[in-house]
């Protein structure tokens, strides 16, 4: 695809966003909705810009990001580890499969009260919830990618003298990287969603907590700010992951 087509596609994609903002502006400026229900976009974005400069708001973002990263990292380590083990070892597979089958469709937020009771109201319960939710997509796509590795790649490596125990790291893991990264992308979006929810349910800081505080006092403007922030964070993190992906997958055919 040439650069011009790319630019025009980007422009096309901006249209609905611009339309949405314009509609939003129109509704509030023609007085269809009072400012207490729907503050105009200008107000919300200037509030966001102003907030971004305050150390208080930076602190809220930092705690949300900390929980998000901690939970997501745990999910990646466990998910990739268990996924690879289940794909390559029949005993692990026999144990992991049914457990995953039961735990994956379980709505993890329902476990959150139990986590609160067991781990307290601090970081631990939120990080655990994020990890529990992000774990399964990563685990499943790792497992999927690793069990789909082309047999002949493994044979080629074995014929070249690779010992059996090295096949996992020399062939299976690199061949599963595209699938693992897909899982990570889903896991990252989930982490954004879940960390926010957990902070809404019980927290003393973080973006989710900001929203709840604003909702209690009916500060509509302050309710929009954390929502837009989490959306932007998700967008930035997704962009970073996309960059990592195109670097790691430079050899792989496009999918």
């Amino acid at each position: 695809m040439n650069a011009r087509a790319l630019t025009s596609e980007v422009l096309l994609g901006i249209i609905p966003i611009a339309l949405a903002v314009a509609l939003w502006q129109a509704i509030s400026s023609f007085g269809y909705a009072p400012v207490t229900l729907l503050p105009p976009p200008g107000l919300v974005f200037s509030r966001l810009a102003q907030q971004l400069g305050t150390s208080n708001f930076q602190h809220e973002i930092a705690s949300t990001l900390f929980r998000l990263f901690a939970g997501f990292s745990i999910a990646v380590i466990l998910g990739v580890g268990i996924g690879l083990a289940a794909a390559t070892n029949p005993v692990v597979n026999a144990v992991v499969r049914p457990i995953v089958r039961v735990l994956a469709p379980l709505p993890k937020v329902a476990l959150y009260p139990a986590l609160l009771l067991l781990l307290g109201f601090g970081h631990e319960s939120k990080i655990t919830l994020v990890a529990a939710d992000a774990l399964f997509p990563i685990l499943l796509s790792t497992y999927y990618g690793a069990s789909m590795v082309e047999q002949k790649l493994i044979w080629s490596a074995m014929a070249a003298g690779t010992p059996r125990r090295q096949i996992l790291f020399k062939v299976v893991l690199p061949a599963a990287v595209p699938s693992i990264l897909t899982g990570c992308r889903i896991g990252l979006v989930i982490s954004c969603i879940v960390v926010f929810l957990a902070e809404m349910i019980s927290s003393t800081d973080g973006l989710g907590h900001m929203l709840v505080t604003a909702a209690r006092t009916f500060q509509a403007v302050d309710m929009f700010v954390p929502l837009i922030t989490i959306s932007l964070l998700g967008l930035i993190l997704n962009g970073l992951l996309q960059g990592l992906r195109s670097y790691l997958l430079r050899g792989f055919p496009e999918v």
Partner: peptide, 16 residues
Amino acid sequence: FFNPLLMITYPVPKAA
């Protein structure tokens, strides 16, 4: 047309 809109709404927790 729709992709970017979906991209920015995806990480927003809908329950929030």
